[in-house]
């Protein structure tokens, strides 16, 4: 389903991704672990073309993201087409990035109404269902700044779900939260995992990775060092680097 092949990315002289390969099957939860600077976030941002890769390609359901292949070359797509592709890819940011001047419900219906051309009434009803699902049915008319960090992140998840994406990407969804608020966000993600949502999650929560992941991916220095079921990667890591990292965070 999500297919990442030989992706390279550099910012000037700094190589952030140096040939990343990753495959994610539909309905699977993949957790990406690794030290800061290992390229986890860049990989995630490349998947919905917020970052342009220098080499390699990424496809979802066989459709190349951000490019069109023709005669052995990749041509970058027009922004309009990239925006259309992104509606299939939900993205949840570390800092939520809710729109502060819009209410919770307006945040959620913005994309369905303006991109998918859903009638407003219908979008509002769908948004209300999503809010109930993340446990915030009573916050529809609040502004984001009136909510706690955990509540804001749950709204951000509902906003990403409103486009009914094929895959949901989480970029350290709990890193900006107070410790006591982490649980409520992880609960929502776990609930999504149970209902078979395809997800790629970059996180530092090892315990959470063990619980929800079908596959754990360990990245370091811009490459995938190892991947496999949680027990294998977390309990019997084959690489020295993985062992060193896990001994520090566990």
């Amino acid at each position: 389903m999500v297919d990442v092949r030989g992706v390279h990315k550099s910012y000037g002289p700094t190589q952030v991704l140096r040939g990343v390969d990753l495959r994610v099957r539909a309905g699977e939860v993949t957790v990406v672990l690794g030290p800061s600077g290992s390229g986890k976030s860049t990989l995630l941002r490349s998947i919905n073309h917020l970052e342009k890769v220098n080499r390699g390609w990424i496809s979802i359901d066989g459709e190349l993201i951000g490019y069109r292949r023709s005669g052995g070359k990749l041509y970058e797509l027009k922004e309009k087409d990239i925006l259309r592709q992104r509606t299939h890819i939900g993205f949840v940011f570390q800092n939520f990035n809710l729109f502060p001047h819009l209410t919770v419900i307006e945040n959620i219906i913005e994309a369905p109404v303006s991109v998918l051309r859903r009638p407003r009434r219908e979008a509002v009803r769908a948004a209300e269902r999503l809010l109930a699902r993340v446990g915030l049915a009573d916050k529809a008319d609040a502004h984001p700044r009136q909510l706690s960090g955990g509540q804001q992140q749950r709204v951000a998840i509902a906003r990403a779900l409103a486009l009914e994406p094929k895959v949901l990407l989480f970029d350290e969804p709990t890193s900006a939260l107070d410790p006591e608020l982490v649980g409520e966000v992880l609960d929502v993600i776990q609930d999504l995992a149970r209902t078979g949502t395809t997800m790629i999650i970059v996180t530092h929560e090892i315990g959470f990775a063990r619980e929800v992941a079908d596959t754990v991916v360990f990245m370091d220095g811009g490459v995938v060092l190892e991947q496999g079921p949680p027990d294998a990667v977390l309990d019997q890591p084959r690489h020295e680097r993985t062992r060193a990292f896990l001994s520090k965070v566990l």
């Binding site: 919905n48 922004e79 729109f99 991109v115």
Partner: peptide
């Protein structure tokens, strides 16, 4: 991050400016 969030949601460029950026 506001523009990134709008882009990640696939909101068209003109609307990103009008609806998300300018009011803020």
């Amino acid at each position: 991050g506001q523009l990134e969030a709008a882009a990640a949601l696939g909101i068209p460029r003109a609307r990103q400016i009008r609806r998300i950026v300018l009011p803020q």
